[in-house]
Amino acid sequence: MLLEGEIEELGAALKGAKAGPRSAGSAVRSVSTSPPVPMRRGDRRRDESDARAAERFAASAMELDADGRVSEVVAAMADAVDFLTPVEAAAAYVVLDAGRRGQLADSLGQMYARERQGRTVIRMALELQDRGMSEDATAILRWAAAADSSR
């Protein structure tokens, strides 16, 4: 699990990274227990180790939330949505929702829908639907549509 210092180190590494997914990915890999790796183009396989990393990230977010450190959770999630793949985002969403942290799950979903491009958000929604979370998948799509119309 990510500890407070690791989340702060990740945030600092991401802020210091040059623009682009490769530099952000290298910044993330520099943290010993980093959240999921950046999406690889054309790789549609469900990489279970990436999903497990997303699940660990979500579990760490729940721990911070339980400690009342909500602003740190929100900051970590805001950084994470830049590099979570749709599978990873869905895995983190599921863990947050199952951990009785529906508000955090919704925040992650809203951030992902607002910050990511259409097809990526659609893939996340499909992942949620495949996991039996059709209502949540619909909510993700609605948030993306609302974000798109406000741009």
Rank of each mutant, 00 (worst) to 15 (best):
S32E: 07
A61F: 13
M1H: 09
A137G: 10
G16L: 03
L128H: 08
P35E: 02
G5D: 07
E55N: 00
P21C: 09
R101D: 03
L64V: 01
D148F: 10
A113M: 05
A105H: 02
V74P: 05
E4S: 13
R46F: 02
S26L: 14
L96T: 01
E135V: 12
D148E: 11
R119S: 13
D148V: 11
L10W: 10
M1A: 09
D97G: 09
S49N: 08
A13Y: 02
A113S: 13
R46K: 09
S60P: 07
V87R: 12
A91R: 04
A80R: 10
A24T: 06
D67F: 00
A27T: 05
A53R: 15
G42T: 01
T33E: 06
L108Q: 07
A76Y: 03
M77H: 13
Y93L: 01
L14G: 05
K18A: 14
Q110K: 13
R41T: 11
A139L: 15
D67L: 11
R123Q: 15
G109L: 13
A13P: 02
Y93M: 00
E6C: 00
D82I: 15
R100A: 04
Q117D: 14
A92R: 08
R22H: 10
A51D: 12
S149Q: 12
S149E: 09
A137T: 01
R52L: 12
A90K: 04
A61G: 12
G5W: 05
A92K: 08
R69Y: 07
A89Q: 06
P36T: 04
R52V: 11
I140R: 03
Y93V: 01
P86Q: 02
R101T: 00
A125K: 08
L64S: 03
A89Y: 04
R45I: 10
M62N: 01
L104A: 00
V31A: 01
M111R: 12
L126A: 13
A105F: 03
A78F: 14
D130N: 08
V87H: 11
K18F: 11
A75F: 11
D67H: 04
A105E: 04
E127D: 04
D50L: 08
G11K: 15
I140H: 04
R56N: 13
R44G: 15
Y112K: 00
L104P: 00
A137W: 01
G42M: 03
A54H: 01
S23F: 15
V74Q: 07
E115I: 11
A80V: 07
A125P: 10
V70A: 07
M124P: 06
R119Y: 12
V70W: 06
A24S: 07
A125I: 11
S26W: 13
A54P: 04
T120M: 14
R44H: 14
A78N: 15
M39R: 08
Y112C: 01
A89P: 04
S60F: 05
P35Q: 02
R116S: 09
A91M: 00
S30F: 09
K15R: 08
